[in-house]
Design a protein around this nucleic acid. Structure first.
Lengths: 138, 138
DNA sequence: ATGTATGCAAAACATTTGCACCTGG
DNA sequence: CCAGGTGCAAATGTTTTGCATACAT
């Protein structure tokens, strides 16, 4: 299955790419930094160089397999492209990330861009806050 | 006037801080990176070390005098806090930045956060696109 | 005077790249 | 076999820090 995605993207099916793609598909953390991935693979006994991870992620991004986000905190995080655009709600205390979609906001953005003569190529809406104690794992 | 802002923020009134604050207030570019500021000051014959600029901007941010944005492109950009929250529309071709406010989006965000048990501390909405040729200065 | 600011150079990060070696098809 | 992938170390670009010196009050 994963190898099909890779071939379709014009990428050779290598161990590194398979492992990284698998991890992104199966990890319960849907948003991972290059280093998160590096460590997670180490834990599973697969050491893949950080440089390779960055290279692979960059290729995946170009191929539309993953999305790169620049949340606060220096490191970029990557998430699997599942075909459903969504925005993010991030807990600044525990790091919890909730995905959401709101059609009225999407529509409004389109309208605002149009009013200003812009043709939207992309957008990023991130709401930072503190989640309710019950769920806040820290 | 500027020195009042500095004093109020508990910061000593120094040449560097005054010059940086003045620049942010008078520059037609409302969003500047540390390096933009460094160069702009050089042009006016004021050489202030980059390290100092970063330190000053960080203090200004802590004092609520400026806002730090992490737009795409590696460098953080800073803009003067003018008391009016707004979001950004950025041209990926020429870098033009348009500020906008939309109450319905603001309200919707509040609602979404609430529905998910989050207390909003901040949010960032950036729309990337291409502006109309007439205005696109590149 | 004295606590703070600044400049400089070095450190710290995240990310990218050059190059020799390895591997998938 | 051979184009393309990988590891490692070194380079990059941005931001931060340590320390000796300079400055504001």
């Amino acid at each position: 299955m994963e190898d099909q995605d890779l071939k379709r993207a014009g990428l050779k099916v290598t161990i590194s790419r398979m492992k990284i793609l698998e991890l992104l598909e199966n990890s319960d953390k849907r948003h991972m930094s290059a280093e998160d991935i590096y460590k997670a693979l180490l834990d599973v006994g697969k050491e893949i160089g950080l440089a390779t991870i960055y290279r692979v992620l960059t290729q995946f991004e170009a191929a539309g397999l993953v999305i790169r986000h620049h949340f606060e905190g220096g490191q970029a995080v990557f998430e699997l492209e599942r075909g459903h655009h969504h925005d993010h709600l991030i807990c600044v205390k525990c790091g919890k990330i909730v995905e959401f979609v709101d059609e009225s906001i999407e529509a409004k953005q389109e309208k605002i861009a149009e009013e200003n003569g812009f043709k939207i190529s992309d957008h990023s809406l991130i709401i930072y806050g503190v989640c309710s104690k019950e769920n806040c794992q820290q």
